[in-house]
Design a protein around this nucleic acid. Structure first.
Lengths: 160, 160
DNA sequence: TTTTGCACCACATAAAATTTTGTAAAAACA
DNA sequence: TGTTTTTACAAAATTTTATGTGGTGCAAAA
């Protein structure tokens, strides 16, 4: 798999990455102007960044409210046991729930933090009662409802 | 601003949104095949979805580890006061810190939850000490370090 | 110094996006 | 219900963009 390879990239590549994170729909011609190269080598660099796995994918970002998704939450989850089998089983269940858009294993009080998005509070409650809390590995849960989102950047700060 | 308008979209639009969330780089020709329309009306629909603000933007997703970002955290932040002035001041500071990629106002114990990404634990500590905890509106903070990420979906579940 | 290998540019070609035009179906209206 | 208006669509033409090719300069290694 070679998943932890350090790939080298220079200042120009870094600039390409910054631009494509902020705006994936830029044309190669415009991108090449912005970074000060001609289109051909610009495209080469982008392809290399894709092939090396530095660029994983491209996504459209939607407005949750405009598609009828009014409630987002973070949920801290504790499992009944912390062995690999339990965690795997839990993850398998979580993967099958599209409303759970993130799942991270964390240090601290809980074991996992989930990000969940749903239509409204009613739908959220139903989801939690009928799906999440039904997972047998789940011990306790603590919800934090998002009142408003002030920052949601898709641009990672690339270290020098 | 007209920010909370309900825009109507049908089943075809919903499929377009699902596809573009998962893969923004699909060609219009391929997209039109997938949804069973010809290229022209397909493109029209995409443009309308963009103009209405349902599609907000397009982003490249990078591999954090491959660009040298090894530590991600969630941080619960409590402010010293909960009035609008304090919150605005806090938000202004947060917006100036690129390592803070998300900031949500939440219910529950804390006031805010941040998602922070940095090079390593040392860089994280430095960031927290010198930037975040220096914000004068901040009272207390509680960090949760992400050990591993099992799910990080860029596809929102669009309600029927 | 010569060679090798990149990284680049300019240009040609292929592919894709976008516009235009015309038509049919659906919705609004009298 | 019949008429008008609007909307959605396809096909084809046009414009824009991506992509491939060949050639040049420069830097590092022989």
């Amino acid at each position: 798999m070679d998943n932890s390879v350090r790939i080298k990239f220079d200042k120009i590549d870094r600039r390409i990455l910054e631009i494509l994170q902020a705006n994936a729909k830029i044309t190669n011609a415009q991108l090449s102007k912005d970074i000060g190269l001609s289109p051909a080598p610009t495209l080469e660099r982008v392809k290399k960044l894709e092939q090396s796995g530095i660029i994983k994918s491209y996504h459209a970002k939607l407005d949750p409210e405009k598609i009828g998704l009014g409630v987002s939450t973070f949920v801290l989850v504790s499992l009944i046991g912390h062995n690999k089998g339990n965690i795997d089983a839990f993850m398998k269940e979580i993967n099958g729930i599209p409303e759970v858009i993130e799942c991270h294993h964390i240090t601290g009080t809980g074991d996992f933090i989930l990000k969940i998005i749903s239509k409204d509070i009613t739908a959220y409650q139903k989801l939690m009662l009928e799906k999440v809390s039904e997972i047998k590995e789940v011990d306790s849960m603590q919800s934090m409802v998002i009142l408003s989102t002030f920052k949601d950047s898709k641009v990672l700060p690339i270290p020098a």
